[in-house]
């Protein structure tokens, strides 16, 4: 898992469903591993496979026409549980960017901490992305973190996206939150001396 993200041009895998919750991304029964690796094979498990473990032909990840390092989902992506395993599964399956018109809070944090870039676009732009992929499954998207835009390459349509500057610096350089927090040790110990009780 690379900790750095700067720029990407790739085709995308569309899952145009709203409220994709973390139980769909990775069902609880696959959370038993004690490492971060290997969750990708169970990404969207129950949409992707039949109960007898044969692939469901109509699910997009089982259709070889679709591929790429960008996952595009409907509104309110990643709602539900706080399991970071959802972000790990997406990363482990080879995605570096998730695009949606709205992300659940905890998922967004978890994605950033997994060095996956969540790109929030307007509903109109999300529609155009889905349409572009419908017209051509190999349609390329360009995501540029430094300049904070996402572009549909074939049509040149482009939208800026927001990201907080701290997280942007982390992703561009491959830093993580713990590195930063560990550097605050003195301030933390100082804070502790100001509190008498544990609240």
């Amino acid at each position: 898992m690379s900790k750095i993200f700067q720029h990407l041009v790739s085709s995308a895998v569309p899952v145009p469903i709203e409220n994709i919750d973390t139980d769909q991304i990775i069902p609880a029964r696959f959370l038993k591993a004690t490492t971060r690796e290997g969750f990708g094979e169970n990404l969207f498990r129950d949409w992707r496979y039949n109960p007898d473990n044969t692939p469901k032909a109509d699910f997009v990840m089982n259709n070889p026409v679709y591929s790429g390092q960008i996952l595009v989902g409907g509104k309110n992506f990643g709602c539900g549980s706080s399991r970071e395993h959802a972000a790990w599964a997406i990363a482990d399956a080879g995605f570096k960017v998730v695009v949606s018109s709205f992300f659940a809070d905890i998922f967004k944090n978890n994605a950033l901490n997994t060095f996956i870039l969540p790109v929030q676009v307007s509903e109109g732009f999300l529609d155009r992305i889905f349409k572009a992929i419908e017209a051509d499954p190999k349609a390329q998207l360009e995501v540029d973190l430094e300049n904070q835009f996402i572009k549909i390459v074939s049509t040149g349509e482009k939208e800026d996206f927001d990201i907080n500057q701290y997280k942007k610096t982390c992703l561009l350089n491959g830093y993580d939150d713990i590195d930063y927090l560990l550097s605050l040790r003195k301030e933390i110990e100082q804070y502790e001396t100001t509190r008498t009780y544990n609240f």
Binding site: E84, H85, D105, N109, N110, N113, N164, D176, D177, L184
Partner: peptide
């Protein structure tokens, strides 16, 4: 009357390591 919220595993590690968490105020 506590401020209590769920976090992901990377954040669990932050808290174990520093008793702090990085958050934007909602």
């Amino acid at each position: 009357g506590a401020v209590a919220f769920g976090i992901g595993t990377s954040e669990v590690e932050q808290v174990l390591a520093t008793q702090c968490i990085l958050q934007y105020k909602p």
